[in-house]
């Protein structure tokens, strides 16, 4: 599903963001990407969405080398990938339903189909009753659920979440993680970059730990840090 082969990324300003990173994520996996700020987590996500190209090495998504994608193919790759951010990135002038529909309009689906899928996705994230509400009227956790709805409404094969709980209190953070687990159970591969050690330690999922642009640890039932594991 997601394959990194000896991927290095050097930005134009000379910063080495990734240094010979290799890992594979299979279909249906739930993976935590952990590590301090600047360790390269976000770069990994940006390479998957093809916002960046690797300086060296290969990134394969669903078997396709992202470097070889033409400009016309990139949008179609992105339609298979849902992305959620720490800051939600909702459009303030659109209602919840319109924000979610935004991702489907781009694919030029028939209006009735858009309506149907938006309704069922809002149901999934538990916001069916908030369809006509504007983002600023929602709590942070609810806003993040809208942004998750927007990310999955198109039935992506992968859901990338970049610190999705970063702006939320613990209670709402757990809501979001449970929602991501539900989405994962429906077959979507989930890759979540996070600093939230409590969640990572509790869930006991696969953990890929990064430091200074390298993968330093990749465990199937991992925890946030080595120390945490040793203490168990």
């Amino acid at each position: 599903m997601i394959q990194f082969f000896d991927v290095s990324k050097v930005y134009a300003n000379g910063t080495v963001a990734l240094n010979r990173v290799s890992f594979q994520v299979a279909k249906g996996e739930f993976v935590f990407l952990v590590g301090p700020s600047g360790s390269g987590k976000s770069t990994v996500l940006r390479l998957i969405t093809r916002e960046e190209k690797p300086t060296e090495g290969k990134v394969l998504i669903n078997g396709r080398n992202t470097v070889r994608l033409s400009r016309r193919e990139i949008p179609h790759l992105r339609r298979k990938i849902g992305v959620v951010f720490q800051d939600f990135r909702l459009l303030p002038k659109l209602t919840v339903a319109q924000n979610v529909a935004f991702a489907l309009e781009v694919c030029e689906l028939p209006r009735r189909e858009i309506k149907r899928r938006v309704a069922s996705t809002l149901e999934l994230v538990g916001l069916a009753d908030k369809a006509g509400v504007y983002p600023h009227e929602l709590s942070g956790g609810e806003q993040q659920r809208v942004s998750i709805a927007r990310a999955v409404v198109n039935n992506p094969i992968v859901l990338l979440a970049d610190e999705p709980t970063g702006n939320l209190d613990p209670e709402h953070s757990w809501e979001i993680v449970r929602l991501l687990e539900t989405i994962n159970l429906r077959g979507t591969t989930v890759l979540m970059a996070t600093h939230n050690d409590a969640i990572v330690n509790a869930l006991q999922r696969r953990v890929i730990a990064m430091a200074e642009g390298c993968v330093v640890r990749d465990e199937l039932r991992g925890s946030y840090s080595n120390e945490a594991q040793n203490s168990i």
């Binding site: 949008p75 179609h76 992105r78 339609r79 990135r89 459009l91 935004f102 781009v106 694919c107 198109n154």
Partner: peptide, 16 residues
């Protein structure tokens, strides 16, 4: 700008 960014992320073509 935000709208353009989101559109790009959800897979809008350049023409769109």
């Amino acid at each position: 700008k935000t709208e353009i960014e989101i559109r790009k992320l959800v897979g809008a073509t350049s023409g769109y």
